[in-house]
Each structure stands twice: as structure tokens, then as C-alpha cells.
Simulated scan of single mutants.
Amino acid sequence: MKYMWWTVQVLCILISLFFLVFGVDLIRGAYGLNDPFSFIMTFFAASFIILISLTLALVFMIKMIRVYRHLRPSQAQEE
């Protein structure tokens, strides 16, 4: 149970990175569309997916860094 939190955080980072790759692939696919309306809708949807996935990955990494710094013994306690 002790390492479950770390596993969940790493899994969430991997999922958000998957959606980042999906968003980049979707935005590249948008440039192949012929209909301007479809291009605009796909482009903005892919941009939104990229924005959310990058934000979530950053939040999960920051949480992991904060917990690691809190759990790590300080150098004053070691002496």
C-alpha cells in the first residue's frame, strides 16, 4: 500500500502523455482535411487535448516532487 500512490501517479503521467501524443497526431491529421470547418474544429479540439494533457502531466510531476522532498530526510537531521 505504501508504493501504491507512486504507482498511481506514474500511471496518470503515462496516460496524460498518451493523450499528448494523441493530440499531436490529431493536430497533424487536421492539416490533411479539405473542409475548412472540419479543420478549425479538429485543430482547436486537438489543441485543447494537448493543453489539458500537458497540464495534468505537469501537476502529477509537481505532486511527486513535493512528496519526494517531504519524505527525503533533510541534511540537518542526518548530521
Rank of each mutant, 00 (worst) to 15 (best):
W5D: 11
W5T: 04
W5Q: 14
W6Q: 13
W6V: 09
W6C: 03
W6G: 02
V8A: 05
V8I: 14
V8T: 11
Q9K: 07
Q9E: 12
L11Q: 13
L11H: 04
C12K: 14
C12W: 07
I13Y: 01
I13G: 03
I13W: 02
L14W: 13
L14D: 01
L14K: 01
I15C: 15
I15W: 13
I15G: 01
L17D: 11
L17A: 11
F18H: 06
F18P: 00
F18E: 03
F18M: 13
F18G: 08
F19K: 12
F19P: 03
V21K: 04
V21Y: 05
V21A: 13
V21F: 05
F22A: 11
F22G: 04
V24T: 09
V24W: 05
D25M: 09
L26S: 15
I27L: 08
R28Y: 01
R28C: 06
R28F: 01
R28A: 11
G29L: 07
G29F: 11
A30V: 04
A30Q: 02
A30K: 04
G32A: 14
G32R: 06
L33P: 13
L33R: 11
N34Y: 11
D35L: 03
D35H: 12
F37C: 01
S38H: 15
S38N: 07
S38T: 04
S38Q: 10
F39R: 07
F39I: 11
I40K: 12
I40Q: 15
I40G: 14
M41W: 15
M41C: 07
M41H: 06
F43P: 13
F44T: 09
F44V: 02
A45G: 13
A45R: 09
A45H: 08
A46W: 04
S47K: 15
S47R: 09
F48S: 11
F48W: 05
F48A: 07
F48I: 06
F48P: 01
I49K: 08
I49W: 14
I49E: 15
I50L: 12
I50W: 09
L51S: 06
L51Q: 13
L51Y: 14
I52W: 08
I52R: 04
L54Q: 05
L54P: 01
T55I: 09
T55A: 06
A57N: 00
A57E: 03
L58R: 07
L58Q: 05
V59Q: 08
F60I: 05
F60D: 10
I62M: 03
I62N: 04
I62T: 15
K63N: 03
K63Q: 13
M64F: 10
I65W: 03
I65G: 00
I65S: 09
I65R: 05
R66L: 14
R66K: 10
R66P: 00
R66N: 15
V67W: 00
Y68L: 02
R69D: 04
H70P: 00
L71I: 05
L71G: 00
L71A: 05
L71K: 08
L71P: 00
R72A: 06
P73T: 15
P73N: 12
